[in-house]
Design a protein around this nucleic acid. Structure first.
Length: 439
RNA sequence: CGGGGCGUAGCGCAGCCUGGUAGCGCAUCUGCUUUGGGAGCAGAGGGUCGGGUGUUCGAAUCACCCCGCCCCGACCA
């Protein structure tokens, strides 16, 4: 992508309304613009990151056996009445009346709808286990939206729903999602710790919040510090295996949000030197809720002996749009964002230090063409901005690599390659730089 | 929802107390000079001062009402 043909309205100054670093940087880097409280337009750069995160989530869900579909954002109130949640959910649910005076709502979550789909279509234990997910916009009318996309009213969420014939089987489904969450966050360069959590309006008796530690986090958490060093399961993990030992390794050590924190247990189980109290951002939550939805909605399947059994359910959310902010909270410096490569909107920022100079233009065009041909995503700053502005902007938007080409270096046959994260800069031939970026 | 704050050019702000020609920096546009970490000079454009009502000869400024946004707290992917 050539910057001259892109849409990247960056800001030099901090917008007054943005208090925390991810919100500030997202506005300044031209990733989002607010349209009203807690509601944002995703500009091209932000949208590119959102899609990369979404894709990682999708891939890891599919590896764990979940199947993607897409449910609507607008739902009928009738379904929610059936589960008793229409009244229970309260004013956070955005309620809408259509032209026929039918009561509708903008979905804050989809347990009711997916259970309805399930009961219409699945009748036999033979079709289970089943795990369906979608990645769709949600709306929760938060009392106080804040922190940019970290706590918006409209947000993109991946929600998966598992259906099983027994509590034991449901637990296996839960474990698969648990492991896939560890994998998902690991791939984004995040250390997410599963913690015992409250179940809230979703219900159920088993739940974990996946939390990344950050000073600006909204949750207070208590944990055994060894959890921070626990390696996530690798890409070779098999979801057909018994995953209980992995779960045990992650849940044996104490970790809880303040809602369910048990100070006595914390002190008994964790040696003093390992007791950690911190703040964190919740990026995902898993629930096992048994028959909470299947019973009131009559979602049952025929068992081998011919009897009907209500299905055992679980649901599993990941805040996809929140992750964009959370990753920035975890990865930035004074100059701007530092994208982990797997979620970066472009891998390389190509800086032409002197647009209009024949040799520099030619060298940049050549590098741009070769990188693009090799499948490397490049944002080529071909504008006639001054060099200083280009450097600052490129640091701000945080692409992992900067390839800097100017007349001075070309004279001695070199270009400069800068690693955004380490700040390390090295001069080398264009060939060497391209080789490094494409390998 | 309780408490606090803020709305003036695209962004950051001053002016308001004490009513009288709407200002500054950055950004934008034009020209010249510059050109390797947010350049200099000269010029230009851009505003229903969040909205309404009132007070007044006169309102960005005073009063009342409304709307929007932000922060702290209680609540949540």
């Amino acid at each position: 992508m050539r910057l001259s043909k892109y849409f990247l309205p960056t800001l030099k100054e901090n917008p007054a309304e943005a208090q925390i670093v991810s919100h500030r940087l997202m506005l300044r880097a031209g990733m989002i613009r607010q349209t009203s409280a807690g509601i944002y337009t995703w500009l091209p750069l932000g949208f590119a990151v959102l899609r990369r995160i979404e894709q990682i989530v999708r891939e890891e869900q599919e590896k764990a056996g979940a199947v993607e579909l897409l449910m609507p954002t607008i739902q009928s109130a009738d379904l929610w009445r059936e589960t008793g949640r229409y009244d229970a959910y309260g004013p956070e649910m955005l309620r809408i009346t259509d032209r026929h005076e039918r009561e509708m709502l903008y979905g804050p979550t989809n347990e009711d709808m997916i259970t309805d789909l399930f009961r219409q279509s699945v009748k036999s234990y033979r079709d289970l286990p089943l795990n369906l997910f979608h990645i769709q916009w949600k709306f929760r009318d938060e009392v106080r939206p804040r922190f940019g996309v970290m706590r918006g009213r409209e947000f993109l969420m991946k929600d998966a729903y598992s259906f099983d014939v027994s509590a034991e089987a449901a637990r296996r489904s839960y474990n698969r999602m648990f492991v896939s969450y560890l994998r998902t966050f690991e791939r984004m360069g995040l250390t997410a710790i599963p913690m015992a959590a409250e179940t809230g309006p979703i219900g159920g008796d088993l739940s974990h919040e996946f939390i990344i530690l950050a000073e600006t986090g909204e949750s207070e958490v208590f944990l055994h510090s060894d959890l921070l060093a626990l390696p996530a399961p690798g890409p070779e993990v098999s979801y057909d295996d018994d995953l209980a030992p992995v779960i045990r390794r992650w849940t044996d050590l104490y970790a809880a949000t303040s809602d369910v924190h048990d100070a006595a247990r914390f002190e008994a189980e964790v040696p003093e030197a390992k007791r950690m109290r911190a703040r964190g951002i919740e990026v995902g939550q898993t629930f096992y809720f048994g028959t909470k939805y299947s019973k009131p909605m009559n979602a049952a399947v025929a068992m081998p002996d011919g009897t009907q059994a209500p299905i055992e359910g679980g649901s599993y959310g990941i805040g996809v749009s929140r992750l964009v902010g959370a990753i920035i909270e975890a990865s930035h410096d004074d100059n701007g964002i530092v994208w982990p490569e797997p979620v970066a909107p472009f891998k390389v920022g190509l800086i032409n230090l002197k647009s209009g100079d024949k040799d520099t233009d030619a060298a940049c065009e050549d590098a741009y063409a070769k990188l693009t041909a090799a499948g490397v995503s490049v944002l080529y700053d071909d504008t006639d901005e001054r060099a200083g502005g280009k450097f600052s902007n490129m640091d701000l938007i945080g692409l992992p690599w900067q390839l800097v080409i100017g007349p001075r270096g070309l004279k001695s046959g070199t270009v400069e390659l800068k690693n955004r994260k380490s700040g390390e800069r090295s001069e080398m031939t264009a060939e060497a730089a391209l080789k490094k970026l494409t390998s």
